[in-house]
Design a binder for these strands. Structure first.
Lengths: 232, 232
DNA sequence: AGGTTGTTTCGATGGAGCATCGAAACAACC
DNA sequence: GGTTGTTTCGATGCTCCATCGAAACAACCT
């Protein structure tokens, strides 16, 4: 009698696929994975639904059983990508420490996360701007992110650690910076993602600190907290 | 006898347009102007050729008499936008002055120029990445811009005015910064373009200077040179 | 065993957008 | 009056997105 691992995948309910390859996992996940890969290569408007479908062994129209519109796929991808920075501010704020160190940690980690993303976040950003309904979740989370970043900046200014800057404008610029970095990073960068992150964090936090001489100390503190955070 | 200004525009050679409105100027220019406006509103993939055509009083297929492909229109737009930063480094380098001041002037003016651009430079950037042939000119000019910026940074480092940074990486980041700023600026900014430019220049140059305390002096010097430059 | 229900997939189809082609409709010149 | 060159059009083919109804199965019920 065959064990579960030997047993061939049980036939699924529903009409069989024209493509004879066996169904590997959750089709929704398969579709998202294929879409992420293809969109990373060809861009959103450059990847036809038919291509995504054939990649997962389906016909074009069958995709619409899982997603009602192309943008729904894009929205699902961006929703996952958005988790990273949100989680990031959460843990960094929880870890505490001086605002400048928190900012340093965020900028570096966010830049690295964006650079290792398989698809172009700015491309998707653009689509999200033109479809506020489908991407309502995205904009809400992004506003939260901006607020939390701004509040870190505000504390940094109050404690005289940072120059006097507009917290809201600074938060926007930091996010735009990280996304801008991804732009040329994906465009064939000779620097590794980690180097880009550290460079950006140096530049931004260096530009915000009341005295640049504190930058090395800030970076060291960030290193230590990051190490402790990844160890657990 | 009617003077030149009273005389109706002389009939042009070729089949008359279905649209009865008189032809105002060079159709190529009209097309580019309409395309710039529409693409700014709806994005490149969001503006159909038929829309551009009807805007200038032509049928869809008639556009292909002036431009062979849609990307050719986009390339023409980006070629013009690219003139601004190139001209900018040229005059700023010619004006001379400390490297930090030159950088400050560039970042501020470039950010302002991008923010007042009618269309989304990142959107076009993305298309240019996927069509290196049509946009060869763009990439060549951009490489030149990077090199010139990098050389300013290199001098700044050599003169101990700036922190020790990678000049090439810095040039890339500066350009990405300016483009990133345009992203959220067009997305309904409550700050004027000038404020954005000054803020970005403060942040970037502040982050590069060996000592932040020199930032106000650098800004003042940039102000003076900009005033002198605009006066002539 | 045969029928019913629910699930998943397909094929056909319509509509929108890009691009090409040949011809139409003019002016200018011979 | 005919020829040439310029500008525009309409028709057409192709690709892509999205919808719809039906096909092809499994599972469950009698």
């Amino acid at each position: 009698m065959p064990t579960a691992s030997e047993r061939p995948t049980p036939r699924r309910a529903g009409r069989p696929r024209a493509d004879t390859r066996p169904v590997v996992g959750d089709p929704t996940e398969e579709i998202l994975a294929a879409a992420s890969r293809l969109i990373g290569e060809l861009g959103v408007s450059g990847t036809p639904m038919s291509r995504i479908a054939s990649e997962v062994g389906l016909k074009q129209s069958s995709l619409y059983y899982y997603f009602r519109r192309k943008e729904e796929i894009v929205a699902a991808l961006v929703a996952r990508a958005n988790v990273v920075p949100l989680e990031l501010v959460r843990t960094i704020t929880a870890d505490g420490g001086p605002p400048a160190v928190q900012l340093y940690r965020f900028v570096r980690a966010d830049a690295v996360a964006l650079c290792t993303l398989p698809f172009d976040i700015n491309d998707i950003h653009r689509i999200a701007q033109r479809d506020p309904v489908e991407f309502a979740q995205y904009w809400k989370e992004r506003a939260t992110l901006e607020r939390q970043l701004a509040s870190i900046v505000r504390r940094g200014c109050a404690e005289r650690q940072l120059r006097k800057v507009d917290p809201k404008l600074t938060a926007l610029t930091i996010l735009a910076n990280d996304e801008g970095a991804q732009n040329w990073f994906r465009n064939g960068s000779k620097w590794p993602a980690g180097a880009v992150g550290t460079y950006l964090a140096d530049l931004v936090v260096g530009g915000l600190l009341a005295g640049t001489e504190h930058l090395p100390r800030t970076r060291d503190a960030a290193d230590k907290l990051d190490a402790a955070s990844s160890a657990e």
